[in-house]
Design a protein around this nucleic acid. Structure first.
Length: 170
DNA sequence: GCTGGGATTCGCT
DNA sequence: GCGAATCCCAGCC
């Protein structure tokens, strides 16, 4: 069972929420997602796509279910999954997860997550709807809480960060 | 062609 | 708690 394109075409906030507890299979790793954030297209001042299509943001305006990976502060990569129908410029930022398998550990922080998974800009615009890279839906909904987004300077009032409260004390 | 800021993290005070 | 590391790119000249 895996999530298809139709799932990622839903409203970004809805997708971000439903991805909590889902499992991402990428680059040979399995990660149960415990923290996500929604970045909702041109109407969202905090979203990179806010100013329209540019060479950097064109991926977000492409078909949903693909990766958007960019370099932040010259040192860290952030992993996003593109959402909504083509042309909307929306995506879900993956901020934290539980690495499964023998080396199970909890990773918090988008930069650290990408470092552990070995993700770089080379993995930008990768399709997550195939055999080796995909998202497995959650079986049961974990306890989820919505909070304001982290690390941004604009639109900080939007409660579009979602966490699995089992892994966050506050 | 130049400049400043950014969806971060870590180490030192 | 504060600031450095570090670089791509959007915006403006």
């Amino acid at each position: 069972m895996r999530l298809e394109r139709a799932f990622f075409e839903q409203p970004t906030v809805e997708v971000a929420q439903q991805l909590i507890g889902a499992t991402l299979i990428i680059n040979g790793f399995e990660i149960e997602l415990i923290e996500t954030e929604a970045y909702v297209g041109e109407g969202d001042a905090a979203c990179h796509a806010h100013r329209g299509i540019t060479p950097r943001t064109k991926v977000m305006f492409g078909p949903p279910g693909r990766t958007y990976i960019y370099l932040i502060y010259g040192m860290y990569h952030c992993l996003n999954i593109v959402t909504e129908p083509e042309g909307s410029g929306s995506a879900v930022l993956i901020r934290g997860g539980l690495i499964k398998g023998p080396t199970a550990e909890i990773i918090k922080g988008p930069g650290r997550l990408c470092r552990h998974l070995g993700l770089t800009k080379a993995h930008n615009e990768m399709c997550l709807l195939n055999e080796t890279h995909f998202v497995r839906p959650r079986q049961e909904a974990p306890p989820i809480k919505a909070t304001p987004r982290i690390g941004i300077t604009k639109a900080t009032d939007k409660p579009w960060r979602f966490i699995n409260v089992d892994y966050y004390s506050k």
